[in-house]
Nucleic acid binder design. Sequence first.
DNA 1: TCGAGTAATACTCAAATCGAGAAGAACTCA
DNA 2: TGAGTTCTTCTCGATTTGAGTATTACTCGA
Lengths: 255, 255
Amino acid sequence: MDEAGFLAAYDPRDYPAVAVTVDVVALTIRDGRLSVLLVERGTSPFAGHRALPGGFVREETLEQAALRELAEETGLAGQVDASRAEGDLDRVHLEQLQTYGQPQRDPRMRVVSVAYLAFAPSLPEPTAGSDAARAFWVPVDEAKDLAFDHDEILADGLERARAKLEYTPLATAFTGPEFTIGELRQVYAAVWGEDLHAGNFHRKVLSVPGFVESTGATTARGGERGGPKAKLYRAGDARLLHPALLRPTREDRVR
Amino acid sequence: MDEAGFLAAYDPRDYPAVAVTVDVVALTIRDGRLSVLLVERGTSPFAGHRALPGGFVREETLEQAALRELAEETGLAGQVDASRAEGDLDRVHLEQLQTYGQPQRDPRMRVVSVAYLAFAPSLPEPTAGSDAARAFWVPVDEAKDLAFDHDEILADGLERARAKLEYTPLATAFTGPEFTIGELRQVYAAVWGEDLHAGNFHRKVLSVPGFVESTGATTARGGERGGPKAKLYRAGDARLLHPALLRPTREDRVR
DNA sequence: TCGAGTAATACTCAAATCGAGAAGAACTCA
DNA sequence: TGAGTTCTTCTCGATTTGAGTATTACTCGA
């Protein structure tokens, strides 16, 4: 609210204490499956349950807090100092998802959590050492019964990711800096959970201005199971896809 | 984060105190212009500046806090008790926008603000009495130099509103319970800031399943400046528009 | 009461786009 | 070497789009 009138009359004791945290829904594609980074909780409440990585916000922006948690949990970059370069994490796309503040979402106290959504190219398994040993990637369809309201947060994050693939070049955030149209199609297939018509997808991607641009090069060899060498592309400068790549319409999504 | 490990080691003195507020971007259409509800600040900082209505979160959900602030500022419904019926406000569509938590966004202390976006049919001017006298509707293109980071919040809210008109039936939240296709088109025109082809819009709206359904009735008389009586419709049961109603493509939005 | 202006609604038509399928060429692995 | 896979390009009919036109039914002011 930010109103001086309120703040002048504001006595912290008039209000319940509120803690602000960030939770991160970090998505990547491993072995062709959309996966999310989870941590195992050691203590009550929800001991033994899995949860999204997250933590208290310090003297930093919300986004820095999310990046810091991600770095700490994955062991990537190792930098706890969020103002520094992030190493492997510098290619991670991070955006705010939503904020969750139901009064009883944490049984101990009022916790308002700002959830972030991260998209990463295939990352190494979180390395041991530091506290990252507790973190691991789980295919999203096996990520159930999470602590707190994290099932809901994950579901919201997945829906956001699926929707953004339609009208933004977000899929390139899941690939390396150079990729083939086929790899891009597999990203869509993994996130949407359904196969796409290869020919139409190819035509579509190349017809959207600024989605991808050719590097001129091709892959060194054909696919694992055969097929010719594929042309390589990198992400273009489009921020929105026009026209969009729409998911196959499913009636139950509409009503 | 919600991790017991952190909470067990958590000492409030280790972290700066954080206040949680809600700010509301309430939009309506008055005299054919998209307008936002603002309040005038009386005290420092930003005394004399206009700001979005908002306030501290109490023992309530974030959404209840947003509704309460809206009711208090507009004087509508008058109910400060957010659990009760909201009177005029019960037809308001409310959704979370984004959370703003830059450390210096409020010069006095760390304030994390959860912004909400409200869409309302043309509402009466906020009534005097209560503290609502401070609130007023302002056409969005005249809402500049707001306090704090409210210019940014408003801009984000407008972009969200414009985007959601494309693929959701949100436009009906700005109309009365019954409306004509022409009224609906004027909502789009006001929010997008550009006129639409009447014939194509008509065809499109009627072709999207579940967007509108006919009431069978027509308006009692023609338009103010002539024209035949129009058929009346009410909102249908679609939650998403398939196919979507896309804004005229502007290149500068894409790159 | 008439005439000008306006709006609702329906139609036309060419261009763009889409989904489904097919085909050829290049490559893998066994 | 042969079977199977994938990349890439086409074809074709159906759908959707944008732009324009036409008809009809109103309002308002002269």
